[in-house]
Design a protein around this nucleic acid. Structure first.
Lengths: 203, 203
DNA sequence: TAAGTTTTTGCCCTTCAGTACAATGTATTT
DNA sequence: AAATACATTGTACTGAAGGGCAAAAACTTA
């Protein structure tokens, strides 16, 4: 299950470096994030993105790109704040743009396998913040009526995700997502995802 | 820069599986986390830990182990809550104990390289929590940004109405409802009615 | 009255959501 | 062993959602 790869950087030299390190000579190359959103690229593409060329990328641009592709954010001057920003908005990895070939391959393989890659420093910050407000496992009331997978689908739905995205997220087919949702709708006596959301958020 | 590896599980079969998958026939084997803390192990060792055998591990035990070693938490029944708990306390990875050899190798390589490995689901939860620390726009004054008709459409949308129903309610065509919604989506930077609802209700 | 803005609509197109009908595999219970 | 629940996927269909292009109609302002 190898996904299409897209290299985004204004620097041909950097693109060459990535391509050489990862054996991606035939990967599609673009110069900025806007170009990615403008043209139709295969869903679930793996995007290597040079942050140096995207100083003015809007949050909406980032999120849109991350919804359709797996975005690996690569910075030539990594900073935790920058990394967190991109991860918040959906990137699946954040690393140094000029990482060694080995590390780059590592990151690449990880995201290809559906994982996420971040350095230790960022992970610790994330965990620290998370821990400060998580005494125990808060199992919301609604989840109790649902099976494990159904709850996972609902959880993703509450992020505003589309079926196709949920499918990717849970690594199942879109059809299965629909099956779970149909079941959930029945359990809550609603007709569609919108009414479900209102029911759960108390609209 | 290969670090010593320690396998911790009460199941010899599982230890064999890990050793075979990762080529670690000579790795030190222990049966529980307490044993790790009792004896002197090389600093910075890489620890593969079967969570199934550590139901009663105290938080202090976990943190102590994680201070001296890189702990890869492996669960035979992965759950986000469990994963977050271990990551909070210093683990550098959380995955399925019986992952395929490829994935296991992936995780192993990643932590060897100094990275952290978590599944997509957990990472998203972390980022979501982190992001919520920095509220972007508590949209309580949403109507102010909209025209009168646009606000009316949004109002109906918040009842969970479909476009056709909204059209009947406002006595306009369904096409007009769509036009208003398209405009509203742009103003709020969202893509569809679901995301709009989430933005407005702060779900 | 002329110019500009907002609201309104139609036609057509693509994509997504949801369901009917059907099937396979696994795990648990009886 | 049989029954049951859960998870998974497929094909195919209907209808809703959303947008591109274009253009009337109404309302406001210079």
């Amino acid at each position: 299950m190898s996904h299409p790869v897209i290299l985004i950087t204004a620097s041909p030299a950097l693109a060459d470096y990535w391509a050489d390190s990862l054996g991606l000579q035939d990967a599609l190359r673009l110069t900025d994030l806007a170009a990615l959103n403008r043209q139709a690229v295969p869903a679930d593409s793996l995007v290597l993105l040079d942050l140096a060329g995207q100083p003015q990328a809007s949050k909406a641009d980032i999120q849109q790109a991350c919804r359709h592709c797996r975005v690996v954010a690569l910075s030539s001057l990594p900073a935790d704040e920058e990394g967190l920003y991109w991860l918040q908005n959906g990137a699946v990895a954040y690393a140094h743009a000029m990482s060694t070939g080995d590390l780059l391959q590592q990151v690449f393989d990880t995201v290809q396998a559906g994982g996420t890659w971040v350095g230790r420093s960022i992970m610790q910050q994330l965990c620290a913040r998370f821990g400060s407000r998580l005494p125990s496992a808060p199992v919301s009331d609604w989840a109790s009526k649902l099976s494990e997978r159904e709850a996972a689908v609902v959880d993703a739905l509450r992020q505003g995700r589309a079926n196709k995205e949920i499918a990717r997220q849970l690594d199942i087919s879109e059809r299965t997502v629909k099956a779970h949702l149909t079941s959930v709708f029945q359990k809550f006596g609603v007709e569609d995802r919108l009414q479900l959301l209102l029911k759960l958020t108390g609209g």
